[in-house]
Design a protein around this nucleic acid. Sequence first.
DNA 1: ACAACATAC
DNA 2: GATAGTATGTTGT
DNA 3: CGGCAAATA
DNA 4: CATTTATTTGCCG
Lengths: 454, 454
Amino acid sequence: MAKSESSGDTGRPWQSYHTVYTNAKAGMEGVDKEKVQRIVYEMSKGSKYFENEERKEAYIKQKIENMQDQIAKLTDADISHYQKVADKRILELEATRDLTRIWLHVDMDAFYAAVETLSNPSLNGKPMAVGSMSMISTANYEARRFGVRAAMPGFIARKLCPELIFVPVDFKKYTHYSDLTRKVFQNYDPNFMAASLDEAYLDITNACYERDATGGEIAEELRKSVYEETGLTCSAGVGPNRLLAKVCSDINKPNGQFVLPNDRMAVMAFISSLPIRKIGGIGKVTEHLLRDAFGIATCEEMLQNSGFLCALFSRSSADFFLSVGLGLGRTDAPEVKLRKSISNERTFSATDDEAFLYQKLADLAEMLSVDMKKEGLCGRTLTLKLKTASFEVRTRAVTLQKYIFSSEDILKHASKLLKAELPISLRLIAASMGYWSVCSLLTDQITELWNFKF
Amino acid sequence: MAKSESSGDTGRPWQSYHTVYTNAKAGMEGVDKEKVQRIVYEMSKGSKYFENEERKEAYIKQKIENMQDQIAKLTDADISHYQKVADKRILELEATRDLTRIWLHVDMDAFYAAVETLSNPSLNGKPMAVGSMSMISTANYEARRFGVRAAMPGFIARKLCPELIFVPVDFKKYTHYSDLTRKVFQNYDPNFMAASLDEAYLDITNACYERDATGGEIAEELRKSVYEETGLTCSAGVGPNRLLAKVCSDINKPNGQFVLPNDRMAVMAFISSLPIRKIGGIGKVTEHLLRDAFGIATCEEMLQNSGFLCALFSRSSADFFLSVGLGLGRTDAPEVKLRKSISNERTFSATDDEAFLYQKLADLAEMLSVDMKKEGLCGRTLTLKLKTASFEVRTRAVTLQKYIFSSEDILKHASKLLKAELPISLRLIAASMGYWSVCSLLTDQITELWNFKF
DNA sequence: ACAACATAC
DNA sequence: GATAGTATGTTGT
DNA sequence: CGGCAAATA
DNA sequence: CATTTATTTGCCG
Ligand SMILES: Nc1ncnc2c1ncn2[C@H]1C[C@H](O)[C@@H](COP(=O)(O)OP(=O)(O)OP(=O)(O)O)O1
Ligand SMILES: Nc1ncnc2c1ncn2[C@H]1C[C@H](O)[C@@H](COP(=O)(O)OP(=O)(O)OP(=O)(O)O)O1
Ligand SMILES: [Mg+2]
Ligand SMILES: [Mg+2]
Ligand SMILES: [Mg+2]
Ligand SMILES: [Mg+2]
């Protein structure tokens, strides 16, 4: 037992430090991953952040071990029972398969960085990152060759690439260009679903029919049009559902596309050897958990372990894993969706100075109130989020009788929540409001009331 | 019964919340007391502090009712008995009246604030308070016009006066200026009695004789001299004893003086309509108690109720009340007085973290030990004072066989006292030492021992 | 309803 | 010297 | 002696 | 958000 899997003890400690940004991503092909990993580890080691990551890793390891124990405890009877459940469920899911729609996922290439390069063409060809010494939002492909990645702190990125140019984040620019891309998307699907500033899902079934074009042709045309309107390149994926389209858009990034035909065999072949981590919704923790507890690394292995998955996960999780194994995804028309929460947060250098913390909270309350007023929102649940000096995250919430939106009300209740945690040394505070069912949009009277103040 | 005194139920709840700083004081003449009272109430309402104040008020009310019951139970025989006791005692006290000495009480005007204004003349004319958002030690007269007062928390003061400037406490400055004033006092009475950093009692009988001057003239001269030496103004009261002199010094504050002649008729006239609260030693509770239980509001009413006072109070309290009615006070030469205790205390945000509380106690023990060494003191009674999260105050004491002074000894015994209270959530800890009769000054050997450390 | 996690951009 | 900000969904209590 | 309350600057 | 600190005195059990 102790003989196998003895890596980690043998003098390469960096191999066990995993971060979001030490992962495969488009543009990382020729990178010396070992070297990047080592530098990231050296720069992180000993920091409060690192220590917290270690605690988290230990917690996850524990969780995996618990799951292994549970698996070991399953009787043969259990196993055959859950296998039946799984098989039945697979049939039900299979029955929902819809190969009648053609979905396209489009994702801009190195979006913020590309926009900044348009604004300042002298950046062209040079390794560049958008963000600060503390945090990078994205990097262009030149920088990615050095291992520089979104979500990597700038000071580590600079170590990987000393000539790296830093450009501060400027949201106004990105929303402007985002709007331009969306004008293009509109032409192919008036009901397209924006997933973020730089990506969208389009149901191009009608577009293909109307223009008598294949999905691939539509994708070419759309990408060309986006480039003409914005000067920016993007990548596209075409497939029978949104989940697959998204996977496809990443395959030939940057400035490429990939089409998965609406054919069950093609889908199953595509899926079979696909690493589960490529699927949207499966992140670092789920990847490790499924690998270490079940030996699952590819999507087809989801199906091979379907009984165990049904035995150990909730209905909704098991359904998700099985549909991943089947290459299923949503094909339904996007519904109009209202936001469910609104928040803001700020990081500062850790302190237990209560006057300082209160002032931060007051600032957040004020900003939050302004944002709520801009959208005419009124909420009932207030959540205070705190990150301690040691990176531990806590949330504290209250649900009120009344719907509120003024900074005074927010501050009043948030203060109480904060007070209950004092004394405490913090590096971040967030204020968030939510829980408006429908009725909670600002009533006209209240709107008047605060308009009066302006 | 229910008809009279129905205030408090009728929508003005703030009228029943009394604090030390909602009281008459020099400089509060043009203040809208109702408004101040209301704001103080609004800012306090709902806090832990407020809730504790309510408990205390309820307790006092109970005490007053008990006293009323006792009064009601007095038989005619009791009454005439105690009246005789009182009359006799009044004669005895009257016999001690000494009109041969002239006492002067001098009290600096807005002392800390005035010193801070000397250090930073740009503060001149602006409302300013010395202290923090939690507690104000004093305020200048500009601030007092807004209702800002010593012992008022800063955050309430800011509500009363948004432009209020806060200056942190700086004791070194105040002792320096205090020393300067005392050099002046010395010239008028080499044995003057310092009552605090900013006030003193002087027996100016000799000074008047030597300079062939009246008390008023001496007071003028002294005040002028203090101003010349320090740049600070003060107020003075002159009278036949210390108690009266102190009352007088407040009458024409700031930068004023008042002389009460050494004449029995003048004293009785002065005393007659004087509110008892003006007398040093009669505070909020005694004022309410005497008013609500006996109907006593002025000093002369002390004499009119002398029988009841003797019936219901201890000998020493009754004597004090009667002498107040007679305008008597101490005229004897000040004896050298040794301090009887030495203590320090610290408030922090309430916690039940035992490691934290222990650390606080260790800090206090260390500070206390240092202070004791500075004065060469050694004590035998150690008192631990605790204030719970709900502002309840507790004290726990031990008297030891040995006299101690080292931080280790203090901590050792204080820890035991604290441990016995755990678990507990505290907002303040104090350590105090006392009980050295005479012998308790540091013996030479011990002195050597700790000198060795320096 | 609340709190902690996981995930994504 | 330095590890973000905004939003959503799931799980367990 | 020990605990609490009141008072003051 | 936030209601001090240091000392003395008196009462009660
Ligand atoms: N932690 C983060 N991870 C990814 N993107 C982030 C992050 N924080 C902010 N962003 C912003 C910057 C990106 O330009 C934008 C779009 O993200 P994403 O599409 O994942 O990467 P990208 O467009 O920069 O590069 P590419 O899509 O070519 O891999 O979102
Ligand atoms: N409650 C308190 N807590 C702490 N320090 C105080 C308190 N009250 C007064 N002090 C300090 C600050 C004062 O300047 C100093 C002298 O007090 P005091 O003579 O009563 O007031 P004052 O000198 O500030 O104004 P004035 O005498 O003009 O009314 O003692
Ligand atoms: Mg992108
Ligand atoms: Mg994207
Ligand atoms: Mg004074
Ligand atoms: Mg004074």
